[in-house]
């Protein structure tokens, strides 16, 4: 089993994701340069957080045209696991691997803080080690994390159990006050139709050691590892 972490110019959580997989999960992992067009040999590809191409024009808009994104599309079509974190989530939406888009936070400010998310789907390849309703403590750090989709798409996401995580308070209540950015229906993470592509705004790779304040992010990565082995 092998992970790949894609590096776009401007990615800045690539090294954190790499560290989480290699040093905490103790799994094999490579960096994949954005010019790469072949993902053979990988089982899970991570699109990390950061500011690919400076997030100029629109978050993720330019990165989606990198050669590697063609390969990611094929990889996903073949059923490979893809997870986009923060900027990675934005890129997956721009590339139409996930529905919807991420708008500027309704606070209009960058927000970096620990918060709580509730696990809505406990069978996916990314969350099956969690239980439904479990509250995870994972930080966010973004300026454009306000998830938006058309009402019919939202209905579809709900009906097909494709909402992975929702922002909530520490007791698991999904409230307006616990929504940090104005996301529709408090959505923090979603799945594609096939269930092999996930996107989330919170940073699980930042919550993998007690020393950092939480180990809840490990559940996400360990879910992937167990599903693949």
């Amino acid at each position: 089993m092998k992970f790949g972490v894609i590096q776009f110019p401007g990615s800045n959580c690539d090294q954190d994701a790499y560290y989480a997989i290699r040093d905490v999960l103790q799994q094999p992992v490579d960096y994949i340069w954005h010019q790469e067009s072949n993902l053979a040999g990988y089982d899970c590809v991570i699109l990390p957080g950061g500011f690919s191409y400076g997030d100029y024009l629109r978050t993720g808009a330019i990165a989606r045209f990198s050669p590697v994104m063609g390969a990611v599309q094929e990889f996903a079509d073949r059923g490979g696991l893809v997870i986009g974190i923060c900027n990675g989530f934005q890129i997956l939406c721009e590339a139409h691997l996930l529905p919807g888009a991420l708008l500027a936070n309704n606070t209009l400010r960058f927000r970096c803080k620990y918060l709580h998310v509730r696990v809505e789907n406990d069978t996916s390849s990314f969350t099956h080690l969690c239980y439904r309703g479990q509250v995870l403590r994972i930080p966010i750090a973004h300026h454009s994390g306000c998830y938006y989709c058309e009402p019919d798409v939202l209905k579809e996401l709900e009906e097909q159990d494709r909402i992975l995580l929702r922002y909530c308070d520490r007791d698991g209540n999904v409230t307006e006050q616990s929504n940090p950015n104005g996301s529709v229906s408090n959505i923090a993470g979603i799945l594609n139709e096939q269930g092999n592509v996930a996107g989330m705004m919170p940073h699980p790779e930042r919550a993998v050691e007690d020393l950092l304040g939480s180990e809840d992010g490990v559940l996400i990565f360990r879910s992937i590892v167990e599903r693949l082995s």
């Binding site: 800045n12 954190d16 960058f110 970096c112 940073h203 950092l212």
Partner: peptide, 8 residues
């Protein structure tokens, strides 16, 4: 407003 956690 500052990313104070990146680099973990």
């Amino acid at each position: 407003q500052y990313d104070h956690m990146v680099q973990t």
